[in-house]
Structure formats: structure tokens, C-alpha cells
């Protein structure tokens, strides 16, 4: 085990090269609906128990199924209404289990990115070859069902190895050249994209995804009241919008169709979407488009700035 993963340098928030999003927007805003499948009887993993109770864990399985049977369409209708294309964090087995749901996303031009095979299959305990095979399987499945070159990764159930980011970048590039394996959603260290070092030296970055605004964390871990979630989202946006006047920021709302689409919660989500998209100077976009834009316009500048600031530190210290 390492003291730190050390895939990015310390790089203070202030004084970075200024980011201007397309059209001069202050905030790049994206919504990442997680579309997940939790198996009813997953095999045991010695590092993490998929369900807290003997299988079948009907309460947990049932509400997650509600998301796909009922919630997904509600969320899709809302994103349509506010002109937002979702960036789907996908348990790719949903392509096989519920192809109609995936087709509805693809028809709308939504991005589909990798979130593992099932949310009950963890990275923990996999050898490097096994993890590579799981990632390749996921990218092949997405490509077969959607025609898309997968650009992003949120590891299944946020389970990682030390090489998760390396492997995703490598497999993505092998399969799709410069269109695949571009960004990770797994790191929560910043409100702007940042370059991420991979062992193979591929151009790779982190796109802010936000665990703090993630509806599952908000509702089931922090047990926030639904209407207060709307307030939190608006406050989060207000500050990123304010700071975005100096240099562009990223705001993501990660959702789960079994959380925000419940009848007692969907109103809060709509209120936030209406508020955020009601502002000018907001780039309503996808994870992939943020990654591409940043790679094209800011990645090299960022690397140079980071390198220059590391040099300064070293010189001062030496």
C-alpha cells in the first residue's frame, strides 16, 4: 500500500492559467445519471459484502429496480425539458438486461461511460489481468450496444486498485485511439479538470464529478431532506458560478434513478435544474465534451504551469 496514489501534483486553486469554456461560459455543467444493476445473488467478494442481508435482499434490490423500471423515464423527461444530455455512468450489463433503456439514452445523444459490469462486482481482489479484462469487457459491451467509444470511467461501486486509472487509459486507447479512455470520475480533489499521470504517459485527466452533490451520498449517507438538496445544489452552483468569472469551473450532479426520481424527491431536482440552466454563461455539456475541450485547449498549458510551480517549490526548498 502507498501513502498516496500520487497521480497528480499539488497545484493550488488560485493563480492557475485561466479557463474559458465555450461561449465564454463560467461553469461547465453536466449531469451524470448512474444507471446501475445490482445482482440479486452476486458471488461473494472477500473484501466487500454486496448486500447487508442474506440473498435475496429484497428491500435493496427492489428500490434499485424501481430506478430502472420507473425512475429512469422520469429523469430522462426532466433532462429533455431543460435541454441536458445525460452522461450515463453505466453498469454495462444493463445493455443486456434492459436494452430499451439504453436505446432511449442513445437516441437522445447521451454519452455512455463505464461504471463496471455490475455494481455488485468490485475491483477489490482482482489481479491486473483480471481488472484489464473487466474493463475491456465493459468497453466492448458499450461499443457493441451504443456504437460509442467510451471516454470516461467511474469504477464500479467506487472500488479501485492502484492501477485502475492506468488500465482504463490503456484499454481505452488500444481500442479507440484518441477517442477512448480519456477521463476518470473517481477523484474528488478539485473543482476544475486536472491532468492525471498514468504509467504509460497517455494524456489523461480527471473531470470533476462531485461526491458531495451525489444524490445517493446526500440522501442515504447524509440523510438530507429532499427540498434541502435543492438548496444545496443551488448554493454549490452559485459559488462555482461566481468563481467561474475568474476561471472556468465544473459542476456535476451525479444522480441515481432510484433516488432523485422518487416522487417525493424529483421536484427538488427539477428546481435545481431550472435554476442552473436559467443562468447565462453556463455550458450545459457532457463529461466527454469537457474532457475533449480541456485536452484541446488547456491540458498542455496546465502541465506547463504545474511543472513550473513544482520547479519553484524545489528551488525554494533546495
Amino acid at each position: 500500500m502507498k501513502e498516496a496514489l500520487d497521480v497528480y501534483e499539488y497545484w493550488p486553486y488560485e493563480g492557475r492559467p485561466r479557463i474559458r469554456w465555450p461561449g465564454g461560459a463560467r461553469v461547465a455543467f453536466w449531469v451524470a445519471p448512474n444507471v446501475e444493476y445490482y445482482e440479486i445473488d452476486p458471488p461473494p467478494n472477500p473484501h466487500r459484502k454486496p448486500w447487508p442481508h442474506p440473498h435475496p435482499s429484497v428491500p435493496g434490490y427492489g428500490i434499485r429496480d424501481y430506478g430502472n423500471r420507473v425512475g429512469h423515464h422520469r429523469q430522462m423527461a426532466l433532462l429533455d425539458k431543460y435541454g441536458i444530455k445525460g452522461s450515463v455512468s453505466l453498469s454495462v450489463a444493463v445493455c443486456e438486461h434492459h436494452p430499451e433503456l439504453i436505446a432511449a439514452c442513445v437516441d437522445r445523444g447521451w454519452e455512455i461511460f463505464n461504471h463496471g459490469i455490475y455494481n455488485t462486482r468490485y475491483t477489490y481482489g482482482l489481479s491486473e489481468d483480471q481488472e484489464r479484462a473487466m474493463i475491456r469487457d465493459a468497453l466492448e459491451t458499450i461499443h457493441r450496444h451504443t456504437g460509442q467509444a467510451c471516454a470516461g470511467y467511474l469504477a464500479p461501486a467506487l472500488s479501485h486498485s492502484e492501477h485502475t486509472l492506468d488500465l482504463f487509459a490503456e484499454v481505452g486507447r488500444e481500442m479507440f485511439g484518441d477517442d477512448g479512455g480519456l477521463y476518470t470520475c473517481d477523484l474528488f480533489h478539485d473543482d476544475q479538470p486536472t491532468p492525471i499521470r498514468t504509467r504509460s504517459g497517455l494524456r489523461f485527466l480527471s473531470v470533476p464529478y462531485s461526491l458531495e452533490m451525489n444524490d445517493t451520498i446526500v440522501y442515504t449517507v447524509n440523510k438530507v431532506e429532499p427540498r434541502h438538496y435543492a438548496t444545496m445544489l443551488k448554493r454549490h452552483f452559485d459559488r462555482l458560478y461566481q468563481e467561474g468569472a475568474e476561471s472556468g469551473t465544473v459542476m456535476c450532479i451525479p444522480t441515481h434513478n432510484y433516488q432523485i426520481s422518487c416522487p417525493h424527491r424529483i421536484r427538488a431536482f427539477e428546481e435545481a435544474l431550472e435554476y442552473i440552466t436559467g443562468h447565462s454563461d453556463v455550458w450545459v455539456t457532457t463529461g466527454r465534451d469537457i474532457a475533449r475541450y480541456y485536452l484541446e485547449h488547456y491540458y498542455d498549458t496546465a502541465l506547463a504551469d504545474i511543472a513550473a510551480k513544482q520547479t519553484t517549490t524545489t528551488a525554494a526548498g533546495g
Binding site: 440479486i40 423500471r69 420507473v70 423515464h73 443486456e96 430499451e100 459490469i117 481482489g125 482482482l126
Partner: peptide
């Protein structure tokens, strides 16, 4: 490392990974 069966998915198919009810979206 875990056994390679950890990458086997016996119920990865149309519908559900069980046969208790049929897949159908409310909408």
C-alpha cells in the same frame, strides 16, 4: 487474486438475473 469465476456472469441476459417477474418500464 480472486478465482477467474469472479469474471463469470451467469445471468447476464435480457430481463432480470432472476425469473420472478418480467422486465417492463412503467412509462
Amino acid at each position: 487474486a480472486l478465482d477467474d469465476s469472479t469474471l463469470r456472469y451467469d445471468h447476464r441476459r435480457y430481463g432480470y438475473d432472476h425469473d420472478r417477474y418480467a422486465w417492463s418500464m412503467l412509462a
